[in-house]
Amino acid sequence: MVWGWQIAWYLFLGGLGAGATVTSLLASRAGPRVGTIERAGATLAGPAVALGTALLVFDLGMGRREPWRLVYLYLNWGSPMTWGTWILTLFIPVALLHALSITGPLPPRWERPVAPVRRAAVRARGTLKVMAGVLAVSTAIYTGVLLSAPPSFPLLGSWLLPVLFLLSALSTGMSAAVVSGYVLARHEKAEFDLCSWSRIHIGLVVMELVVLFAWLTVGAASQAGGDSVQLLVSGSLAPVFWVVVVFGGLIAPVIAHIATATNGNSQVALAGEAGVLAGGLALRYLVLLAAVPVIIGPAL
């Protein structure tokens, strides 16, 4: 696979930003008071997706050397990458405006130039929420569609990959928002209800576990897909797959969240969130590394 670590991080950060936005929007339904998770999720989203997009641009050839060429990326409506370019172009500013609309003022020196934008964002808060939600889900699904569209790698060419990436995006974004929200709550000496989030997160992670193995089962149907699956489950990538993705990123967090939901031990849940983040990043890396091409030799 010609795509390397920059793309793996981009897929991870794009998903994380999308999931953090969805988490923020879910948190906003709890009541009129803007809680720490709502603010943390919204604040994380824009910078995370922007950083991922910067890595994407850094990975380009001539697009990096002559950035004005990037305008061509908006041209081919048949290409998933053009869809993604439009989605990211809209999502990054909408995520930043959404964050401005629900967070408090910055120190006066920084707030002064931002103030008119913040006032406009607050007025348009409802519209921004809807737009942020739609664009976040689009971003999360798109990262999977980008890889599943071409016919060259059978393991990737399944509709289950976008589903897996959507679930992983929601899960990693929720972890990032919950950990940041927890830190913010401690700083503000505010109350923090981790238990209800743990219950939602258990559901997400269990679904991700089911989709992950369904994706591998469907992918194994072809020769090259089977070789990819073998690389992951028993080949050179197996230690990272089983330890970091499956155990650290899915099973351990479920156990941690069950422990938190039953006895309220927040430290355990936070360790589980760290596992989700590491597992989500490793998943993106492994998907690229395990891509075995459909044609590995001539056949007539």
Partner: peptide, 19 residues
């Protein structure tokens, strides 16, 4: 017109492209 995104290399099932 090319930005060098390498998507065509990823997409070619014949592995006929290089960067």
């Amino acid at each position: 017109k090319c930005v060098g995104c390498k998507y065509c290399i990823v997409a070619c099932p014949y592995g006929a492209r290089y960067f």
